[in-house]
Design a protein around this nucleic acid. Structure first.
Lengths: 148, 148
DNA sequence: CCATAATACTTGCGTCCGGAAGTATATCGC
DNA sequence: GCGATATACTTCCGGACGCAAGTATTATGG
């Protein structure tokens, strides 16, 4: 079913673009966070000790290491995140979510949750949403950085 | 089911990132086209008379008008696309797919089709792929620019 | 041990994008 | 008709990204 595979991929690309355009502006307006930044913080929120090596964070977010460096900067200035060294290995730098950061994540996550609901509301059954989530999970569920 | 809605959205974002990273490099290596450029050409391929106003093309691709201007430039130089004016309205500019463009779309589309198949192969049933395509279609099927 | 390779991170550079401003043309209201 | 507004498009500018190069540190193997 090559036709179906192609259709699924094309629609995935389209759907993502549509959804991101729908979510990102509101998120920025309410919390001053870009969607990318919230993903960044959410990864830390889920990580053990709210802490991740920069390399691993890059892998989880599927972005380059330099993007992690640059994303982290403003979040440090805002106090949502701080740097930590590894006493065993001076090469690695950890990014740690601060208390203020955890609070901001909780707030922004709630907003994102409302936005997600709004997108599905009135045209989707709970079962359909669950099926979609389950199928999409197939792509990345086994990869590091999967998030609930 | 707010939890499920959020999970579905998060997984959609992750899945898109994963899929695009999987597809784009190969497509560029084989055909010298970025995924964005192929989308651009595919929109014209499906359009009546292989022709679209720049504004409408921007809407179909969910990008800004300036992006259309810049995407079109190299594709014109390569001869895949050409400009046309509207005799009725001097403001509008059409982008038209040339014969060479149609051929290139056909080739690149075949590659994309193989890549799409490869992504699903061995872990997905035809039925699951069809369900995914159908559910993802809900987001954008009613919007202009939906493509098969 | 110590030279070589591998790893973690940052910085510089080129590219791509969106939004605002600028230009040109068409439409609307009176 | 004609000034005001709207639309289509391009250009300019700032921001964000990936890649490659640079720096620092750790691991490897003879």
């Amino acid at each position: 079913m090559s036709d179906t595979s192609l259709a699924a991929i094309l629609r995935l690309l389209r759907a993502q673009s549509f959804v991101e355009a729908r979510i990102d502006p509101g998120l920025g307006a309410i919390h001053g966070l870009a969607l990318r930044e919230l993903m960044f913080l959410m990864q830390l929120d889920q990580a053990p000790a709210n802490r991740l090596r920069r390399v691993d964070l890059a892998g989880h977010l599927n972005v380059s290491q330099s993007t992690v460096t640059r994303l982290a900067l403003p979040l440090e200035k805002l106090g949502f995140v701080k740097r930590e060294a590894d006493p065993r290995d001076a090469r690695v730098g950890y990014v740690v979510l601060t208390k203020a950061g955890r609070q901001r994540v909780a707030e922004a996550r709630a907003t994102l949750e409302r936005q997600a609901e709004a997108i599905f509301r009135d045209r989707w059954t709970d079962k359909e949403i669950a099926t979609l989530a389950s199928l999409l999970g197939r792509f990345t569920a086994a990869l590091p950085g999967d998030i609930t």
